[in-house]
Simulated assay, not measured.
Amino acid sequence: MFRGFYTVASGMAAQQRRTEMLTNNMANANTPGFKADQSTLRAFPEMLLQRFDQQNIPTENGLKLPFNKKIGTLNTGVYLQEAIPNFIQGDLKETGLQTDLALLNVSMPANGSVYFTVAGANGDQQYTRNGNFTVDGDGFLTTASGHFVLDETGNRIQLASDRFTLSEDGVLTGENGKRARLGVAFAEDSNRLIKQGDGFYRTENGNTLPTAYNVAGAQFKLQQGFIERSNVDVGKTMTEMLSAYRAFEANQKVLQAYDRSMEKVANEVGRVG
């Protein structure tokens, strides 16, 4: 009887986590470069039930032979195994702002993608698809949250003003004629990147990704005055949120039924004896 409590509770916990993930996707539907998370639910290992018994053999002295019979399997619950970002290219939105930059994947190897290179809070390199940049008071190109955007060699990019131009192959030309090439990194398998806050990603082992300009088969271009929109499908996300809520509600009803059964056992069956 109590095994059912654990099974139902695990279902409720999994659907709650799934709802939180979908809510986060919905909240970032308008965040430039955001990649929606996808959940994978997995069942706990099944238990094999067997009945141990004995068979009476009609002999002079009586013979009892033990045997066990397979009853079947019993599922012991479910859990949300992991949340994996969906790295499909988002639509480009024209903003007209010169500091807004967008990466457009033209042709990429399977699971491969390109990312802007930025300086993390600890000075390490991190990666993002959010090209909503700005120029700070010292002339450095930064993200909206203040992280420095890096060039091809891993150095900060300093410009005379926000009036600069960007070629499709990543060359920034400032108002004073100063030039720098925007740092664009290539991830051979985007699924191996670890999601951070503010739309940033890092590698599993902390190593830096190679520059994308020299990778064979990785064709991309940069566009100034555009940003990549979030790839969250609002309609699909709303449907999945309702589905997760209904599944949570169904588990809740089963849990209430178990509770009533146990109450009946405690209050009525005990009196029979």
Rank of each mutant, 00 (worst) to 15 (best):
M1V: 08
F2G: 10
Y6E: 06
A9P: 09
S10H: 04
G11I: 04
A13K: 11
R17D: 14
R18K: 13
N25M: 06
G33P: 12
K35L: 08
K35G: 11
L41M: 11
L48Q: 13
I57T: 14
T59Y: 05
G62E: 12
L63H: 10
T73S: 14
L74H: 07
V78H: 08
L80V: 10
P85W: 00
I88G: 15
Q89W: 06
G90N: 09
D91E: 15
T95N: 10
G96T: 08
T99N: 06
L104F: 08
S107Y: 05
T117L: 00
V118F: 01
V118I: 11
G120T: 00
N122W: 00
T128D: 01
N130M: 00
G131W: 00
F133R: 04
F140M: 12
V149H: 05
G154S: 09
A160E: 15
A160M: 08
D162G: 15
F164K: 04
V171K: 12
N176I: 02
K178V: 04
R179K: 13
V184K: 01
V184C: 07
A187I: 05
N191M: 10
I194P: 10
G199C: 03
E204Q: 13
N205S: 10
K221G: 10
I227K: 06
S230P: 07
V232M: 06
T237W: 07
M238R: 02
A244L: 07
Y245T: 15
Q256A: 03
Q256C: 00
G273T: 13
